[in-house]
C-alpha cells in the first residue's frame, strides 16, 4: 500500500464550518415532585457534579448513528465535531448549583432554519478532564428567525429530548464512557446508515479508490472518499530509512503489520520485525497513532507494504 492519507477530522472540520442558526434556546431539566425525573447523572448513577460541561450545537451532515459513533470514541471526538450554539454552561447553573440539574438560555446570532440541535453533556468541567459523555437531540430543526428579523425561540425540557448516546435511567439521563470504536460503528459513521449493506462489508470499496473498507479503517483513511487513501511513507533520517504509517488502536480484533522485501515482485513478503516506535503526532485522529519502523538497507533497495488481518477477514 502506497497511497495518500486523509484524516477523518478534516471531513468533520469542513462540516463544522456551517454555523448553527437560531437565537434563543431555553434548556432545562428542573422538575417538581409531581413531574418525572430528568436528572443528569454519571455512569455510576451519581448526579453530575456542578460544573460539568454542557454545550448545545449541531452536527452538520451527521445523523444520530454517526454522532453516537463519535461519542463512542470519547468526549474529545464528539466535542470536536460539534458546531457550538452559544457558550458552554456548567451543570448547576440556573439550579442553585445543584448537581445533576441545569437551566439556561443559550443565544446566538440570528439566521435561517438549520438542522437538528443537540446537547453534549460531559462528566467533567472540560473536554480534557471528561471521560464520559451524553448526547441528546433537542429538536429536529433550529427554527428560523421570523421574516421581520425577530430572533427565533425554542424551549426544550431535557425530559423530552431524544437519547443519542448515553443511558436512559429511571432518574433521567446518564453519561456513558467511551468504548473503542468497532469496524461496524466506524463504517456506519463513514457511509451513513442509509448506504447499501454491501458497501458496509470489510472487503467492499464503495469509494473505488482501490482500498478496501478494512484497510481504510485500519490505516485511517475515509471509506466514502475516493481521494482519501491511507499512505505508507518512507522517511530518511541520518542515513537510515523508516516506514511511517497511521494505525488504529484499541481494536484487539486487528492485527496490523508492516512487510518489507527487497524485490518488488516477490511472492511472499516477510513481516518487518524491527521495533515499532510511536511518533508523537498531534494530527493523528482520535483512535489512531502514527508509528515508524526501521527498514533494512543492506540490499541497497527495499519495498514496504502494510497488511491488516481481522478475525475472519483479511486485506492488504
Amino acid at each position: 500500500m502506497k497511497a495518500a492519507l486523509l484524516l477523518p477530522s478534516l471531513i468533520l472540520g469542513a462540516l463544522a464550518s456551517a454555523p448553527a442558526r437560531a437565537s434563543n434556546v431555553v434548556v432545562s431539566n428542573l422538575t417538581s415532585p409531581e413531574s418525572p425525573g430528568a436528572t443528569l447523572t454519571a455512569a455510576n448513577g451519581s448526579p453530575l457534579a456542578a460544573g460539568s460541561l454542557v454545550r448545545l450545537g449541531a452536527f452538520p451532515g451527521l445523523d444520530t448513528e454517526q454522532i453516537a459513533a463519535l461519542a463512542q470514541q470519547g468526549p474529545a471526538s464528539v466535542a470536536a465535531a460539534l458546531t457550538p450554539f452559544g457558550p458552554a454552561f456548567p451543570v448547576g447553573s440556573g439550579a442553585a448549583g445543584n448537581p445533576g440539574s441545569i437551566e439556561f438560555t443559550a443565544s446566538q446570532a440570528t439566521g435561517t432554519q438549520a438542522g437538528s440541535l443537540y446537547a453534549v453533556i460531559l462528566n467533567g468541567a472540560s473536554v480534557e478532564t471528561s471521560t464520559e459523555s451524553l448526547v441528546l437531540k433537542l429538536s429536529e430543526v433550529l427554527p428560523a428567525d421570523d421574516a421581520s428579523g425577530l430572533p427565533a425561540y425554542l424551549a426544550v425540557h431535557l425530559r423530552d429530548a431524544e437519547l443519542v448516546f448515553g443511558s436512559d435511567t429511571a432518574a433521567g439521563y446518564a453519561t456513558k464512557a467511551s468504548e473503542p470504536e468497532s469496524f461496524e460503528t466506524w463504517i456506519t459513521r463513514q457511509l451513513g446508515s442509509g448506504a447499501a449493506s454491501a458497501d458496509h462489508l470489510a472487503e467492499a470499496d464503495p469509494d473505488h479508490d482501490g482500498a478496501s473498507n478494512l484497510l481504510e479503517y485500519a490505516f485511517g483513511s475515509g471509506a466514502g472518499d475516493g481521494s482519501s487513501i491511507a499512505r505508507l511513507e518512507i522517511h530518511e533520517s541520518n542515513g537510515e530509512y523508516f516506514a511511517r504509517y497511521l494505525r488504529r488502536v484499541g481494536d484487539s480484533s486487528l492485527q496490523i503489520r508492516c512487510e518489507a522485501e527487497t524485490q518488488i515482485d516477490a511472492e511472499t513478503w516477510p513481516t518487518l520485525e524491527t521495533t515499532v516506535t510511536v511518533i508523537g503526532d498531534s494530527s493523528a485522529p482520535t483512535g489512531y497513532e502514527r508509528v515508524q519502523q526501521l527498514l533494512p538497507t543492506s540490499a541497497g533497495q527495499a519495498f514496504a507494504r502494510l497488511r491488516v488481518t481481522r478475525i475472519g477477514e483479511q486485506g492488504e
Partner: peptide, 12 residues
C-alpha cells in the same frame, strides 16, 4: 407557572 422554563409561559 411551572417547575421549569420550558413548561411555563416565558416573557422577555
Amino acid at each position: 407557572a411551572a417547575a421549569s422554563a420550558p413548561e411555563a409561559d416565558t416573557i422577555r
